[in-house]
């Protein structure tokens, strides 16, 4: 009897596999948000709002990660994947904000949904939708629920700093955060540095070090460590670029590559970025290799006019 059950089960799985091969399910069918009203969902889920919020949060994380993976794969293969196989909305992260909005409406105190959600939303394409405005809107929604949450104010300041490059507003948010109850004492100097030297790599480093210090989960900690390594890479690129420029300025120099620089005793060998991948030279400019874990490096924002030099 058990054998018969096993045989029938295996048969059912085999038929399903054949059906899926012949008639593949389009991804578009999965990417539908049937209910967009958080208020309606709150009612439908009765006393189980928090669990529904967890499910929407998991869906948001999966949606963000899945879309990210698709876009990354497309980038890696020059031809790109079959464009018809991917929902066009998924290329634009269209469902990300609605999913996060539903999550936080169902559970208005879902701390990580605000904080991570803002990071996901603000990341520029293709790592995210590049919607700094929605990231701020989500965090402000969190602040309406918990007006004393300094972390949300710090995150809003971060979005203004890192993605919008509006250092005055960023400094104002860091300052507001520093006045919130239980705020850490490093927020006040961060506000001052941002106001004085916004856009400066040193203040960026200070900000990421602050985030690393206050990271609540491993993912955020890894993000901060990654960004700090990118800043180190930017410092190294500047130093290498000076060497390359000197080499190019020397009369009768051989064709430029790392080996030529090593032969000229200007470098000990092929320089590696902080992730261990060799740097590349393109048209006389030192840059990070696309294969590096640190690729792409953040764009260096303009400094505040009149700010002190780094």
């Amino acid at each position: 009897m058990l054998t018969l059950v096993a045989v029938l089960m295996a048969g059912a799985a085999r038929v399903e596999a054949v059906r899926e091969r012949r008639y593949p399910t389009s991804e578009q069918a999965d990417e539908t948000l049937y209910l967009r009203s958080g208020t309606m969902l709150r009612r439908l889920t009765l006393a189980y709002n928090a669990l529904a919020a967890d499910l929407y949060w998991i869906r948001a994380v999966q949606y963000y990660g899945g879309t990210n993976r698709i876009l990354r794969a497309e980038q890696e293969t020059a031809a790109g994947t079959d464009a018809t196989a991917v929902d066009p909305a998924r290329r634009r992260f269209d469902l990300l904000y609605p999913l996060l909005d539903l999550t936080t409406t169902l559970d208005p105190r879902f701390n990580i949904a605000y904080r991570f959600g803002a990071i996901f939303l603000a990341e520029p394409y293709p790592a995210g939708p590049g919607r700094a405005d929605l990231a701020i809107a989500l965090l402000q929604k969190g602040l309406r629920e918990r007006p004393d949450k300094w972390e949300y104010m710090q995150d809003i300041g971060f979005v203004y700093y890192w993605w919008i490059h509006d250092y005055k507003t960023a400094a104002a948010w860091f300052d507001r955060a520093s006045k919130a109850p239980n705020a850490p004492n490093w927020l006040r100097p961060l506000a001052a540095t941002t106001l004085a030297q916004g856009g400066d790599r040193r203040s960026s480093r200070l900000m990421w070090e602050s985030i690393l210090q206050s990271a609540e989960v491993d993912w955020l900690r890894q993000q901060a460590e990654h960004r700090l390594l990118q800043l180190n890479a930017l410092d190294q690129i500047d130093a290498l670029q000076r060497i390359v420029d000197r080499f190019l300025a020397s009369p009768g120099h051989p064709p430029l590559d790392w080996a030529a620089l090593a032969r000229a005793r200007m470098l000990p060998g092929r320089p590696l970025d902080p992730s261990g991948t060799p740097y590349v030279i393109q048209d006389g400019k030192v840059t990070i290799a696309p294969a590096s874990k640190l690729f792409p490096l953040p764009t260096e924002p303009d400094k505040i006019p009149g700010s002190s030099p780094s």
Binding site: Y48, L51, D54, W57, V61
Partner: peptide, 24 residues
């Protein structure tokens, strides 16, 4: 599974799931 599916908040989700399961 939750550890694999979500970024952080495992404890919150397990608490939610546990309480809802008790209730249901």
């Amino acid at each position: 599974l939750i550890g694999q599916l979500t970024a952080g908040q495992d404890v919150k989700i397990i608490k939610d799931l546990g309480l809802v399961s008790v209730s249901v």
